[in-house]
Simulated scan of single mutants.
Amino acid sequence: MRETLEKYQVWLYLVAIFTGIGVGSYWQTVQAWAFALWPLLGVLLYATFTQVPLLHISQAFKDRRFMSALALGNFIIMPLVVWGLATLFGLEDAVLLGVLLVLLVPCTDWFISFTHLGQGDSARAIAAAPVLLLLQIVLLPLYVTLMMGEQLVGGHLLSELLPAFLGLIVTPLLLAWLTEKGAAQSAVLKRGVEVMGWLPVPLLAAVVFLIAASQVQLIIESQEMLWQIAVIFVLYLLAAALIGKTLHTLFRLPTASGRTLVFSLGTRNSFVVLPLAIALPDIWAAAVVVIVMQSLIELLGMVVYLACVPRLVKQPR
Protein backbone atom coordinates (compact mmCIF):
# COMPACT_ATOMS: atom_id res chain seq x y z
CA MET A 1 0.00 0.00 0.00
CA ARG A 2 2.74 2.48 0.92
CA GLU A 3 4.68 1.60 -2.24
CA THR A 4 1.53 2.19 -4.31
CA LEU A 5 1.05 5.57 -2.63
CA GLU A 6 4.63 6.58 -3.45
CA LYS A 7 4.31 5.24 -7.00
CA TYR A 8 1.38 7.53 -7.78
CA GLN A 9 2.47 10.48 -5.65
CA VAL A 10 3.19 12.67 -8.68
CA TRP A 11 -0.44 12.58 -9.77
CA LEU A 12 -1.63 13.10 -6.20
CA TYR A 13 0.44 16.29 -5.90
CA LEU A 14 -0.69 17.59 -9.28
CA VAL A 15 -4.34 17.03 -8.38
CA ALA A 16 -3.74 18.76 -5.02
CA ILE A 17 -2.16 21.81 -6.68
CA PHE A 18 -4.86 22.30 -9.30
CA THR A 19 -7.63 21.59 -6.79
CA GLY A 20 -6.10 24.15 -4.44
CA ILE A 21 -6.05 26.77 -7.20
CA GLY A 22 -9.68 26.04 -8.01
CA VAL A 23 -10.87 26.06 -4.41
CA GLY A 24 -8.81 29.14 -3.56
CA SER A 25 -10.32 31.02 -6.50
CA TYR A 26 -13.83 30.22 -5.29
CA TRP A 27 -13.29 30.65 -1.51
CA GLN A 28 -10.75 33.40 -0.99
CA THR A 29 -10.22 32.83 2.73
CA VAL A 30 -6.46 33.32 2.67
CA GLN A 31 -6.04 33.67 6.43
CA ALA A 32 -7.87 30.41 7.10
CA TRP A 33 -5.72 28.54 4.56
CA ALA A 34 -2.53 30.06 5.98
CA PHE A 35 -3.59 29.26 9.56
CA ALA A 36 -4.00 25.57 8.67
CA LEU A 37 -0.75 25.53 6.70
CA TRP A 38 1.81 26.09 9.46
CA PRO A 39 0.96 23.10 11.69
CA LEU A 40 0.95 20.85 8.62
CA LEU A 41 4.33 22.17 7.49
CA GLY A 42 5.84 21.53 10.92
CA VAL A 43 4.56 17.95 11.05
CA LEU A 44 5.58 17.35 7.43
CA LEU A 45 9.18 18.48 7.96
CA TYR A 46 9.51 16.52 11.18
CA ALA A 47 7.99 13.34 9.72
CA THR A 48 10.14 13.57 6.60
CA PHE A 49 13.36 14.20 8.51
CA THR A 50 12.69 11.12 10.66
CA GLN A 51 12.85 9.05 7.47
CA VAL A 52 16.35 10.34 6.68
CA PRO A 53 18.89 7.96 8.29
CA LEU A 54 20.74 10.68 10.19
CA LEU A 55 22.40 8.20 12.54
CA HIS A 56 23.93 6.22 9.69
CA ILE A 57 25.65 9.00 7.77
CA SER A 58 28.93 7.04 7.66
CA GLN A 59 27.31 4.46 5.32
CA ALA A 60 27.21 7.07 2.56
CA PHE A 61 31.00 7.19 2.35
CA LYS A 62 31.45 3.50 1.62
CA ASP A 63 31.07 4.26 -2.10
CA ARG A 64 33.49 7.16 -2.52
CA ARG A 65 33.18 7.45 -6.28
CA PHE A 66 29.41 7.79 -6.14
CA MET A 67 29.50 10.26 -3.24
CA SER A 68 32.19 12.31 -4.96
CA ALA A 69 30.12 12.52 -8.14
CA LEU A 70 27.00 13.33 -6.11
CA ALA A 71 28.67 16.12 -4.12
CA LEU A 72 30.42 17.57 -7.18
CA GLY A 73 27.20 17.60 -9.17
CA ASN A 74 24.86 18.91 -6.49
CA PHE A 75 27.07 21.44 -4.74
CA ILE A 76 29.49 22.73 -7.36
CA ILE A 77 28.30 22.12 -10.93
CA MET A 78 24.53 22.61 -10.49
CA PRO A 79 24.96 25.83 -8.42
CA LEU A 80 27.05 27.17 -11.32
CA VAL A 81 24.24 26.20 -13.69
CA VAL A 82 21.72 27.98 -11.46
CA TRP A 83 23.90 31.10 -11.31
CA GLY A 84 24.24 31.00 -15.10
CA LEU A 85 20.48 30.70 -15.65
CA ALA A 86 19.74 33.48 -13.16
CA THR A 87 22.25 35.75 -14.91
CA LEU A 88 21.07 34.82 -18.41
CA PHE A 89 17.44 35.65 -17.59
CA GLY A 90 18.32 38.74 -15.54
CA LEU A 91 16.46 37.60 -12.42
CA GLU A 92 16.13 40.03 -9.52
CA ASP A 93 14.67 40.40 -6.02
CA ALA A 94 11.95 37.93 -4.96
CA VAL A 95 12.00 35.94 -8.20
CA LEU A 96 15.77 35.47 -7.94
CA LEU A 97 15.42 34.47 -4.28
CA GLY A 98 12.76 31.87 -5.11
CA VAL A 99 14.86 30.36 -7.89
CA LEU A 100 17.97 30.21 -5.69
CA LEU A 101 16.16 28.75 -2.69
CA VAL A 102 14.57 25.96 -4.66
CA LEU A 103 17.30 25.05 -7.16
CA LEU A 104 20.28 25.07 -4.79
CA VAL A 105 18.97 22.33 -2.48
CA PRO A 106 18.95 18.66 -3.62
CA CYS A 107 15.96 16.56 -2.65
CA THR A 108 16.20 14.07 0.22
CA ASP A 109 12.81 12.38 0.09
CA TRP A 110 10.89 11.77 -3.12
CA PHE A 111 14.11 11.47 -5.10
CA ILE A 112 14.46 8.09 -3.35
CA SER A 113 11.04 7.03 -4.63
CA PHE A 114 11.80 8.24 -8.15
CA THR A 115 15.18 6.49 -8.04
CA HIS A 116 13.40 3.24 -7.21
CA LEU A 117 10.78 3.72 -9.92
CA GLY A 118 13.46 4.75 -12.44
CA GLN A 119 15.55 1.59 -11.91
CA GLY A 120 18.25 3.33 -9.88
CA ASP A 121 19.94 2.24 -6.66
CA SER A 122 17.54 2.99 -3.78
CA ALA A 123 20.02 1.83 -1.13
CA ARG A 124 22.62 4.38 -2.26
CA ALA A 125 19.94 7.07 -2.46
CA ILE A 126 18.89 6.39 1.14
CA ALA A 127 22.50 6.36 2.33
CA ALA A 128 23.22 9.65 0.56
CA ALA A 129 20.14 11.47 1.89
CA PRO A 130 21.60 12.64 5.24
CA VAL A 131 24.76 13.92 3.56
CA LEU A 132 22.70 15.86 1.01
CA LEU A 133 20.52 17.30 3.77
CA LEU A 134 23.37 18.42 6.03
CA LEU A 135 25.46 19.89 3.20
CA GLN A 136 22.57 21.95 1.85
CA ILE A 137 21.79 23.33 5.30
CA VAL A 138 25.39 24.52 5.59
CA LEU A 139 25.83 25.76 2.01
CA LEU A 140 22.44 27.32 1.17
CA PRO A 141 22.98 30.55 3.17
CA LEU A 142 26.46 30.89 1.64
CA TYR A 143 25.25 30.40 -1.94
CA VAL A 144 22.29 32.79 -1.53
CA THR A 145 24.60 35.43 -0.05
CA LEU A 146 27.13 35.09 -2.88
CA MET A 147 24.56 35.10 -5.70
CA MET A 148 22.23 37.84 -4.43
CA GLY A 149 24.94 40.19 -3.17
CA GLU A 150 23.62 43.74 -2.81
CA GLN A 151 20.02 42.61 -3.25
CA LEU A 152 20.39 40.51 -0.12
CA VAL A 153 21.76 43.40 1.93
CA GLY A 154 19.51 46.07 0.45
CA GLY A 155 16.35 44.11 1.12
CA HIS A 156 17.40 43.29 4.71
CA LEU A 157 16.82 39.68 3.70
CA LEU A 158 19.63 38.07 5.67
CA SER A 159 18.25 39.23 9.03
CA GLU A 160 14.85 37.78 8.10
CA LEU A 161 16.01 34.60 6.39
CA LEU A 162 18.41 33.27 9.02
CA PRO A 163 15.90 33.17 11.96
CA ALA A 164 13.35 31.46 9.70
CA PHE A 165 16.02 29.02 8.54
CA LEU A 166 17.00 28.12 12.10
CA GLY A 167 13.45 27.84 13.37
CA LEU A 168 11.78 26.09 10.44
CA ILE A 169 14.56 23.80 9.22
CA VAL A 170 17.13 23.25 11.93
CA THR A 171 14.63 22.73 14.78
CA PRO A 172 12.62 19.93 13.06
CA LEU A 173 15.92 18.37 11.99
CA LEU A 174 17.22 18.27 15.57
CA LEU A 175 13.92 16.84 16.81
CA ALA A 176 14.07 14.16 14.11
CA TRP A 177 17.65 13.30 15.09
CA LEU A 178 16.61 12.96 18.76
CA THR A 179 13.66 10.80 17.71
CA GLU A 180 15.87 8.50 15.64
CA LYS A 181 18.35 8.28 18.51
CA GLY A 182 15.53 7.34 20.89
CA ALA A 183 14.08 4.86 18.39
CA ALA A 184 17.38 2.96 18.44
CA GLN A 185 16.65 2.10 22.08
CA SER A 186 12.84 2.16 22.23
CA ALA A 187 10.52 -0.21 20.38
CA VAL A 188 7.63 2.23 20.80
CA LEU A 189 9.56 5.10 19.21
CA LYS A 190 10.82 2.79 16.48
CA ARG A 191 7.25 1.85 15.65
CA GLY A 192 6.32 5.53 15.69
CA VAL A 193 9.05 6.33 13.16
CA GLU A 194 7.76 3.51 10.93
CA VAL A 195 4.21 4.89 11.12
CA MET A 196 5.48 8.37 10.26
CA GLY A 197 6.90 6.90 7.08
CA TRP A 198 3.32 6.90 5.76
CA LEU A 199 2.83 10.60 6.44
CA PRO A 200 5.08 12.57 4.04
CA VAL A 201 3.10 11.87 0.84
CA PRO A 202 -0.43 12.69 2.14
CA LEU A 203 0.91 15.58 4.24
CA LEU A 204 2.77 17.07 1.27
CA ALA A 205 -0.38 16.75 -0.84
CA ALA A 206 -2.29 18.65 1.85
CA VAL A 207 0.44 21.29 2.07
CA VAL A 208 0.59 21.97 -1.69
CA PHE A 209 -3.22 22.16 -1.72
CA LEU A 210 -3.21 24.78 1.05
CA ILE A 211 -0.37 26.75 -0.55
CA ALA A 212 -2.10 26.80 -3.93
CA ALA A 213 -5.38 27.82 -2.28
CA SER A 214 -3.80 30.58 -0.20
CA GLN A 215 -1.55 31.94 -2.97
CA VAL A 216 -3.95 31.71 -5.92
CA GLN A 217 -4.37 35.49 -6.22
CA LEU A 218 -0.61 35.99 -6.25
CA ILE A 219 -0.29 33.21 -8.83
CA ILE A 220 -2.81 34.97 -11.07
CA GLU A 221 -1.05 38.33 -10.65
CA SER A 222 2.30 36.71 -11.50
CA GLN A 223 1.15 34.78 -14.57
CA GLU A 224 3.28 36.84 -16.99
CA MET A 225 6.39 35.94 -15.00
CA LEU A 226 5.51 32.26 -14.75
CA TRP A 227 6.32 31.42 -18.36
CA GLN A 228 9.87 32.72 -18.01
CA ILE A 229 10.29 30.85 -14.75
CA ALA A 230 8.90 27.67 -16.34
CA VAL A 231 11.53 27.88 -19.09
CA ILE A 232 14.30 28.21 -16.47
CA PHE A 233 13.09 25.12 -14.61
CA VAL A 234 12.79 23.08 -17.81
CA LEU A 235 16.32 24.10 -18.82
CA TYR A 236 17.51 23.12 -15.36
CA LEU A 237 16.01 19.63 -15.72
CA LEU A 238 17.65 19.19 -19.12
CA ALA A 239 21.02 20.33 -17.75
CA ALA A 240 20.70 18.02 -14.73
CA ALA A 241 20.08 15.00 -16.95
CA LEU A 242 23.05 15.76 -19.23
CA ILE A 243 25.42 16.56 -16.35
CA GLY A 244 24.31 13.43 -14.49
CA LYS A 245 25.00 11.33 -17.57
CA THR A 246 28.43 12.98 -18.01
CA LEU A 247 29.43 12.44 -14.37
CA HIS A 248 28.23 8.83 -14.59
CA THR A 249 30.67 8.31 -17.47
CA LEU A 250 33.57 10.28 -15.95
CA PHE A 251 33.37 8.51 -12.59
CA ARG A 252 32.68 5.13 -14.23
CA LEU A 253 29.72 4.47 -11.98
CA PRO A 254 27.54 1.37 -12.18
CA THR A 255 24.38 1.87 -14.22
CA ALA A 256 22.02 1.96 -11.23
CA SER A 257 24.26 4.48 -9.43
CA GLY A 258 24.36 6.66 -12.54
CA ARG A 259 20.57 6.74 -12.68
CA THR A 260 20.46 7.61 -8.98
CA LEU A 261 22.83 10.50 -9.67
CA VAL A 262 20.61 11.86 -12.45
CA PHE A 263 17.52 11.75 -10.24
CA SER A 264 19.40 13.49 -7.43
CA LEU A 265 20.55 16.33 -9.68
CA GLY A 266 17.06 16.71 -11.16
CA THR A 267 14.99 16.74 -7.97
CA ARG A 268 15.00 19.66 -5.53
CA ASN A 269 13.93 20.08 -1.90
CA SER A 270 11.11 22.49 -2.69
CA PHE A 271 8.90 21.72 0.30
CA VAL A 272 11.82 22.17 2.73
CA VAL A 273 12.62 25.71 1.55
CA LEU A 274 8.97 26.64 1.05
CA PRO A 275 8.44 27.54 4.73
CA LEU A 276 11.40 29.93 4.48
CA ALA A 277 9.76 31.82 1.64
CA ILE A 278 6.36 31.84 3.33
CA ALA A 279 7.85 33.23 6.56
CA LEU A 280 9.36 36.26 4.79
CA PRO A 281 7.61 39.66 4.51
CA ASP A 282 5.18 40.35 1.64
CA ILE A 283 7.89 42.05 -0.43
CA TRP A 284 9.35 38.59 -1.04
CA ALA A 285 5.98 36.88 -1.66
CA ALA A 286 6.74 36.12 -5.32
CA ALA A 287 9.38 33.64 -4.11
CA VAL A 288 6.55 31.41 -2.88
CA VAL A 289 4.95 31.36 -6.33
CA VAL A 290 8.32 30.53 -7.90
CA ILE A 291 8.83 27.56 -5.58
CA VAL A 292 5.30 26.25 -6.17
CA MET A 293 5.87 26.60 -9.92
CA GLN A 294 9.13 24.68 -9.66
CA SER A 295 7.35 21.87 -7.82
CA LEU A 296 4.81 21.63 -10.63
CA ILE A 297 7.44 21.63 -13.38
CA GLU A 298 9.58 19.12 -11.50
CA LEU A 299 6.69 16.72 -10.99
CA LEU A 300 5.91 16.78 -14.70
CA GLY A 301 9.63 16.48 -15.40
CA MET A 302 9.89 13.38 -13.23
CA VAL A 303 7.26 11.67 -15.39
CA VAL A 304 9.60 12.28 -18.34
CA TYR A 305 12.66 11.27 -16.31
CA LEU A 306 11.06 7.93 -15.37
CA ALA A 307 10.67 7.15 -19.07
CA CYS A 308 14.01 8.57 -20.27
CA VAL A 309 16.62 8.07 -17.54
CA PRO A 310 16.80 4.24 -17.94
CA ARG A 311 17.50 4.86 -21.64
CA LEU A 312 19.92 7.74 -21.01
CA VAL A 313 21.98 5.72 -18.52
CA LYS A 314 21.97 2.26 -20.09
CA GLN A 315 23.21 -1.11 -18.99
CA PRO A 316 26.53 -1.90 -20.74
CA ARG A 317 26.23 -4.46 -23.52
Rank of each mutant, 00 (worst) to 15 (best):
H116F: 04
L97K: 12
T87L: 11
V105H: 00
D121N: 15
L91R: 03
P106V: 12
D121R: 03
L146S: 05
F111I: 12
S122V: 14
W110G: 11
L96G: 02
I126V: 15
G90V: 01
D93E: 08
D109N: 13
V131N: 01
A129I: 07
G98L: 07
Y143H: 04
L117D: 01
D109M: 13
W110I: 06
A127V: 08
A128M: 08
D109F: 11
D121E: 10
V99H: 01
C107L: 05
W110Q: 12
D109C: 13
S113C: 15
V105Q: 00
A94R: 12
L88K: 02
A129L: 07
C107V: 06
D109T: 12
V138E: 01
E92D: 07
W110K: 11
V131W: 00
Q136F: 04
G98D: 05
I112F: 06
D121P: 04
A94D: 07
E92Q: 13
T115M: 07
T115V: 12
L117S: 11
A127F: 05
H116Q: 13
P130C: 15
L140V: 09
L104Q: 08
V144T: 08
T108M: 09
L91A: 13
F111E: 00
L140W: 02
P141Y: 03
L134K: 11
P106C: 14
L139Y: 03
L104S: 11
L134V: 14
L117P: 03
L139V: 09
H116R: 15
L88Q: 02
L91K: 11
P106I: 10
S122Y: 04
I137N: 03
L88R: 01
P106S: 14
Q119E: 12
L97T: 08
V102Q: 02
V105I: 04
L132T: 13
V99F: 04
I126K: 09
T108N: 07
A94C: 09
V95T: 13
Y143P: 01
V105P: 00
A125W: 09
G120T: 10
I126E: 01
L140Q: 03
W110C: 10
L135G: 07
V99L: 04
Q136Y: 05
L132H: 05
F89V: 04
D109L: 12
L101C: 12
F114N: 11
V138I: 15
V99G: 02
F111D: 00
F114C: 12
E92R: 14
H116D: 07
L146Y: 02
I137W: 00
P141I: 04
A125I: 07
L103P: 03
L135A: 15
